[in-house]
Amino acid sequence: MDVLTGAYEYVLNNGDRFWEAVRVHLSLSLLALLIATAICVPLGIACAKKQWLTGTIMGVFNSLRVIPSLAILVIILPLMGTGFAPALVALTILACPPILIHTYIGFRGIEPFVLEAAAGMGMGPGMILRKIEFPLAMPIMLSGLKTAAVEVVASATLAAFIGGGGLGTFIINGLGMYNFSLLLVGAVPVAILAILSEVGFAGIERAATRFQRS
């Protein structure tokens, strides 16, 4: 209990530092997710439509998935040095595989005759993408985004190892100073953020799949 109250008091006394860490943590995570989405959604769609692309691209991203997050951070270190930017790159790489794979699966899962019917009604490729393919692939894409979000929010903690800031700073310092209160100042909010992003995306997912349940 002392440990928890200690953590609470620390937050009260060092509000500025705490909220700054939360802000950095969140912006790191959100930016990483946005960049990964911007890259991987189009790539996933391209893979789903052009089978010859699939092998190469999926192979590359699947192998990325095998590398532990900490290892990615450490590999980035000699290339980009320390700070926010290398942390962002590492987290983006981490967020890519689930988004790419789920986009691919989502688009591949659309029945071909639904697309044939849409084309037969006189919809152009752009309209089919917006009105048919995106809505139909959305539930699976969102579950990929959810996985990526939880992973990124949790792994953003590690950014502190390469000077990226964020809530991980408290954890590292807490560990180093053998101060468990300080450790919890980082750990508890990270856990809460991870749970919140899980719950948040699950909510959006439910809204997007209403047609499958009613």
């Binding site: 029945e111 005759f113 019917a117 037969g120 009604m121 047609f211 499958q212």
Partner: peptide, 19 residues
């Protein structure tokens, strides 16, 4: 696209838009 809008098209698998 214009041509297809002026022709009705029905296929065996129906192909209704599920969403």
């Amino acid at each position: 696209t214009e041509l297809r809008r002026s022709i009705g098209y029905v296929i065996q698998q129906v192909g209704l838009f599920p969403h």
